[in-house]
């Protein structure tokens, strides 16, 4: 299926994060894939330019010849976005970010994610605010996973976070965008990019997020755990584009009742 698109549309404002311009509003994670080959292929198919990774202990004394994720997902080609996944407090998250910066030769873009509990993986906002403040002071460019509270989102922007990333539903739940009203409020208030991070289950969910006016969507499980991750990655790429176009186009008003598409004038019966 190749797109034969002859129609020229006005240029869209591209997504800009930390001074870099991106063509795709799709950001993808690298967890839960079968192997590194599948990871690489899915990310290629997704067209994503920003890719999240986790920071963990090196396995000591095991298979030191094993290929490294960053050999497959090269920092020369992709913007690597290290996350603080698994951290439950500000101290661990700040430590993780510092290790990530060292790991990536001074690259200071991070995804701050501090979780509050295992069941919902909801963000721990008090700790997130503390960590955000400390990281911004230390020169990090912080993209922040957060709750969908519009006032907290505004606070994170005031602290200096460069992207606000509320959840649409719990991480890995695939429930879709459960909080359209709150996401809309966050977008209306924000002067930095807003991305839905977590909750997307299938392509239409990503489209809904973009139709709401999000600048992008970050996802992992929806692609990695699809029956065919490569094809789902492509579906997500198109879904993000479709949602963006629909947002720019402006949807028709909703009506309670029908409105005929064919005119009544000229009927011969």
């Amino acid at each position: 299926m190749t797109e034969q698109n002859q129609t020229q549309l006005p240029q869209d404002k591209p997504l800009e994060i930390a001074g870099r311009v991106y063509q795709s509003g799709l950001l993808v994670g690298t967890g839960k894939y079968r192997d590194l080959a599948e990871t690489a292929e899915a990310i290629e198919a997704s067209g994503a330019e920003i890719v999240t990774v986790a920071v963990r202990r090196t396995n000591i004394g095991q298979n030191t010849d094993e290929p490294n994720l960053l050999d497959v997902i090269s920092p020369d080609r992709y913007t690597i976005l290290p996350n603080t996944a698994g951290c439950m407090n500000a101290k661990d998250a700040v430590r993780t970010c510092k290790l990530a910066r060292e790991l990536l030769d001074g690259h200071d873009l991070v995804k701050l994610e501090i979780l509050g509990e295992d069941k919902t993986l909801y963000p721990n906002m008090p700790e997130t605010l503390v960590a955000a403040e400390e990281l911004v002071k230390d020169g990090f460019q912080v993209m922040v996973y957060c709750s969908d509270d519009p006032l907290l989102a505004r606070r994170l922007e005031e602290i200096g976070c460069i992207a606000i990333m509320p959840l649409g539903a719990p991480i890995g739940s695939g429930l879709g965008i459960q909080n359209r009203y709150s996401i809309r409020q966050i977008i209306e208030n924000a002067n930095v990019p807003v991305l839905v991070d977590a909750g997307v289950g299938t392509a239409s969910d990503a489209t809904i997020a973009m139709e709401l006016g999000c600048d992008g969507v970050l996802m992992n499980t929806a692609i990695a755990q699809a029956r065919d991750p490569i094809r789902m990655a492509r579906a997500m790429k198109l879904a993000i584009e479709a949602g963006r176009h629909a947002h720019l186009a402006g949807r028709m008003p909703r009506r309670a009742y029908a409105s005929a598409s064919s005119p009544i004038d000229g009927t011969f019966f």
Partner: peptide, 9 residues
């Protein structure tokens, strides 16, 4: 602590 990058979301 010696750390590296692995798959994550």
């Amino acid at each position: 602590e010696i750390v590296h990058a692995i798959g994550g979301g």
